[in-house]
């Protein structure tokens, strides 16, 4: 099983390391999800203070960082892979993170985001937009402004290698804490049965 401990010793020595702090570099990313997993993360409440003592949050929808940085220790990824921007970010996350965690059901299974997989893409855009009132927004093609949808929404592990899974829609703060504290301690994420349930 992959843990931070095994990944850390496996670090390539020739890569320049950020010299600033010895804190664990944590990132969270938001792909095709409702942000509920991040809301649940914020529900860690006072534990966030404990967390802040041991980690640097180097990238997150709740931190104003534009580029996914290098040398990230742990990245929690909310949401399924639904468009070309998600594909690109997922690749970056994998290349630049030691541990990648599927955070919540959309990342783990596709969940609600993948409900659209039953429709061919054209039908979907027609049903939701072209047949509806008002002007049709962009989205059918990659115009560099609005990212094009990929034909099928995918769970994260079908796009990149994933090291651990936190199911739940959203995972409650207790689950998140159990998983995150294991990750930070360099232990494998083994959630108890009650915390493994989808939904």
């Amino acid at each position: 099983m992959t843990t931070l401990a095994t990944k850390r010793t496996g670090r390539k020595a020739d890569k320049a390391e950020p010299a600033v702090s010895s804190k664990i570099r944590l990132a969270t990313a938001w792909l095709g999800g409702c942000s509920g997993c991040h809301m649940s993360f914020l529900d860690l409440d006072e534990k966030l203070i404990d967390l802040a003592e041991v980690v640097d949050l180097v990238y997150s929808p709740i931190a104003d960082v534009k580029e996914f940085p290098d040398h990230v220790d742990v990245t929690l990824v909310e949401g399924a892979v639904a468009n070309v921007d998600h594909l690109e970010l997922a690749e970056q996350i994998r290349q630049r993170s030691k541990l990648v965690v599927s955070f919540g059901d959309c990342a783990v299974t596709g969940n609600v985001t993948s409900l659209r997989n039953k429709f061919p893409l054209e039908d979907l855009l027609t049903k939701v937009y072209h047949e509806g009132p008002g002007a049709v927004p962009r989205g059918g093609e990659y115009d560099k402004i609005v990212p094009a949808l990929i034909p099928r929404v995918l769970p994260l592990h079908q796009v990149i290698e994933v090291d651990a899974f936190i199911p739940g829609c959203p995972p409650d703060p207790e689950r998140i804490w159990a998983a995150v504290s294991a990750l930070l301690a360099g232990e494998p994420v083994v959630l108890p049965e009650k915390m493994r349930m989808f939904g």
Partner: peptide, 21 residues
């Protein structure tokens, strides 16, 4: 198509339970 989050049996389903177990 199993999407537990929007299912009538979410939390009481035997399939979901067995997966967790």
């Amino acid at each position: 198509n199993h999407v537990c989050a929007v299912c009538v049996m979410n939390g009481r389903c035997e399939l979901q339970d067995e997966a967790a177990k």
